[in-house]
Design a protein around this nucleic acid. Structure first.
Lengths: 237, 237
DNA sequence: AAGTGGTCTAGACCACAAC
DNA sequence: TTGTGGTCTAGACCACTTT
């Protein structure tokens, strides 16, 4: 029960109450939790208090809402913090930020020795290139260069390339991810990149390269390069 | 100006208004923006509307609040999503989640050939080991093994090891980060890890290894291994 | 039509920091 | 003491989904 005499805000107490019900499986995954009205009445608090408590749990990934329907349990355990290792789209979504991806280029390409090394491939094979610009609030936040093996044919045919590629790989492609390698290196941007990312003159960028290995294949099926403005060194702790 | 006849919620319109003032440097970095009361009066909206708009911008990292003082501009440009590539603490904080780190072990250690390879060092030198458990809401979310070169003596002496190591490295240590390498591999947990992370029986974990290179040194000064419960395959996209 | 969450207002009291 | 953001209430109207 919530207690007004405690020095802890009501919405935090209520949040803990709800969380406990989820942890103890009184409310199970994908089942609906009480409506805002019901929570107001059960705990004798105002609607703002209920909404504050609920919104924290939504933010932390425990519950989700469906407009016009209700609020539901998403998960019993937290998945804190490692989302960005998997998906930029997801990590933005977790912060309530809508991202938009624009396909700039899509091609089957020829591979030379240099690219072969980049891709960590030992022999020449089919290679598909996808270039996307990633936007948040109409501001470009990254240039993304993707290189796929023939797996791309399926992706291109069946999925929407403006959404999260990680989602497609993890959820829909039905593959086992064996290994993800990643290298981040800061450097000066090229003129073209300055233009695409709307960069000020002296600003550095980051090269983020990623290789994904699946299905026991010794070579990666997917090579990704992000070009990102580097404000990384002055973020507000 | 905000407009009630538009189909866009007032708080989103107000958010855009504030953001524009920041982007166009009408309100500059670290300067105070109008108080909630002033914003209510300027835009003829209620306090909840103002607080909603402001809280989004806080979440996105544009502004920050000081209790009892006011609200201030943090940055002009977005830095969405990439900070967490370096700092777990940051990525949690961005979602309004407080993390707690507990130092389990701290030692100067002997290096054998196996470890030397792991660390990507070519010759033996001083090596300091730090093991921490990382908690959120009293739930352990990761086991962290850190290996430092002699740089650690300064860190250990001058800083609080229960805070963000990334913050210390980036902000306080005054080094240039040249390169960050990272490998993620899923595997079955050891019994000890099951215990420390409170794992259910069939759950996989992720090994996340990270090497950080600084100051043009060809060898990393810092090797990190995270052991993380893996909910990757059921992300709520 | 009924029920849900989404948006919004007006007002209140509080804890905190600065003067 | 004053002003700030933090918490909380009661009430209103809306858009959305299901019946």
């Amino acid at each position: 029960m919530v207690n007004r005499r405690k020095p802890i805000p009501l919405y935090l107490q209520l949040k803990e109450e709800i969380l406990e019900k989820i942890k103890k499986e009184k409310w199970t995954i994908d089942s609906q939790i009480p409506t805002e009205k019901e929570l107001m009445e059960s705990y004798n608090v105002g609607r703002a208090t209920v909404r504050e408590a609920v919104s924290i749990l939504v933010n932390e990934g425990y519950i989700y809402k469906k407009k016009g329907i209700g609020t539901f349990v998403a998960r019993k355990n937290p998945t804190y913090g490692f989302e960005p290792l998997i998906s930029l789209t997801y990590s933005l979504k977790a912060r309530g930020i809508r991202a938009y991806n624009k396909v700039v280029e899509k091609d089957k390409i020829h591979i030379d020795q240099l690219l072969l090394d980049k891709l960590k491939w030992t022999s020449t094979k089919e290679c598909y290139y996808l270039k996307r610009l990633r936007y948040v609030e109409n501001t470009p936040i990254a240039i993304e260069h993707s290189y796929f093996d023939e797996t791309f044919k399926k992706i291109d045919k069946e999925y929407d390339l403006t959404t999260s590629l990680a989602k497609i790989i993890i959820e829909d492609l039905n593959v086992n991810i064996d290994r993800v390698e990643q290298v981040i290196v800061p450097r000066k941007p090229k003129d073209m990149e300055k233009l695409e990312l709307n960069l000020e003159d002296d600003k550095l960028i980051l090269d983020l390269e990623r290789w994904i290995y699946i299905n026991n294949n010794p070579e990666p099926f997917y090579y990704l390069k992000f070009v990102i403005p580097s404000d990384i060194y002055n973020y507000p702790f």
